[in-house]
């Protein structure tokens, strides 16, 4: 009996989503009176023992050349063996690209019930029930897991990173793996930007900005706030902005602390991708824009006049 948390790393760098997953898994272990352990696949230069501050006692590291490139089939092989060695019965992933690629396959292999996109700690008062988002953020479902082994993928920005004192024991696991069948030809990572799903603040622009040449005001405000930038679907479809910035039902779903929508009318498909944001600000010159109904704060006005003034005010406040 233990909780096992999957640590997601990219070129040795551990992401915020993993710290959230570690904190979440450690809390579940504390609730159920068991140990929280973590697993990391591949080489990492990070000080893994320091991850003990997120509440895990032991970290299982699997070093194997077959893990150098991401291949779900190979990762699942490795994880199956770690789960079997540790006897873990609750397994936690981040609900990100890697988690979504691995957790379902591991679930099928282990016949372990899976809940993806969890937003809260499990309720164990009557079975093991996990709350998750459904209908693209328009509702939540409470899902009971009936199997002995349980797998949860945790939504980014749904659980706080909790730090305390402590270092973890790092154990290197020697595991034999069959090579994967996927040959990676090239990898192109967006450097230096906060991934949209992990950003605390997101500033987003829509068709109201009239053209890609006007994105300066969005970028300036984002820079002042330390925010990521995003856009609505028509903007991505028109190639004003890259597709990876598109938030909404068919784009990326985000849940930042603060979402500022500039010149976006707020179609239901857009709201589906952003409605879990804690605070929503809408700036639109049309007072009838449906987005105002979903917003916490709003300004009815011309974005080209209002937004630069907001940027100035933010800069002034931040000194």
């Amino acid at each position: 009996m233990s909780v096992l948390i999957f640590i997601d790393q990219s070129e040795g760098h551990i992401k915020k989503a993993s710290y959230e997953a570690l904190s979440y898994g450690a809390k579940i272990a504390e609730m159920s009176g068991t140990a929280a352990e973590a697993v990391i696949l591949g080489n990492s230069d990070s000080d893994l023992a320091a991850l003990g501050q997120y509440g895990v006692s032991k970290i299982h590291q699997v070093r194997n050349d077959h893990l150098n490139h991401f291949d779900a089939q190979v990762y699942i092989q490795a994880l199956e063996q770690v789960v079997s060695r540790t006897g873990a019965d609750i397994i936690i992933f981040s609900n990100n690209v890697d988690g979504k690629a691995i957790a379902p396959g591991l679930s099928a292999q282990l016949k372990a019930g899976l809940v993806t996109g969890a937003v809260d700690l499990p309720d164990t008062s009557n079975g093991f029930v996990v709350k998750k988002t459904v209908f693209s953020g328009k509702a939540f479902a409470h899902v009971r897991i009936n199997s002995a082994i349980k797998i949860i993928t945790l939504n980014p920005n749904a659980y706080p990173v909790l730090e305390k004192e402590g270092r973890a024991e790092v154990v290197t696991e020697d595991i034999q793996l069959l090579p994967g069948k996927v040959t990676v030809k090239s990898v192109n990572k967006v450097k230096g930007e906060v991934p949209l799903t992990e950003a605390d603040i997101v500033v987003s622009g829509g068709r109201g900005l009239k053209g890609p040449e006007n994105w300066g005001i969005v970028e300036d405000l984002a820079k002042a706030l330390g925010a990521a930038t995003a856009c609505s679907r028509p903007v991505a479809d028109a190639d004003w902005r890259p597709h990876h910035e598109h938030v909404g039902q068919t784009g990326i779903a985000i849940a930042p602390n603060l979402y500022i929508a500039i010149g976006i009318s707020g179609a239901i498909q857009h709201l589906a991708g952003v409605n879990r944001s804690k605070v929503i600000v809408v700036i639109n010159k049309d007072p009838e824009a449906p987005f105002f109904k979903a917003a916490d704060y709003g300004i009815v006005g011309d974005a080209f006049e209002v937004v630069p003034k907001i940027t100035e005010a933010v800069k002034k406040l931040k000194g």
């Binding site: 019930g113 509702a139 199997s147 916490d296 300004i299």
Partner: peptide
């Protein structure tokens, strides 16, 4: 046998309403 089962649904709390600030 399925491994999981939905026991209930919940709608997100309604927004309190937008606070409009003059432009």
């Amino acid at each position: 046998e399925p491994l999981t089962q939905i026991v209930g649904f919940e709608l997100p709390p309604a927004k309190a309403g937008v606070k409009l600030i003059p432009a």
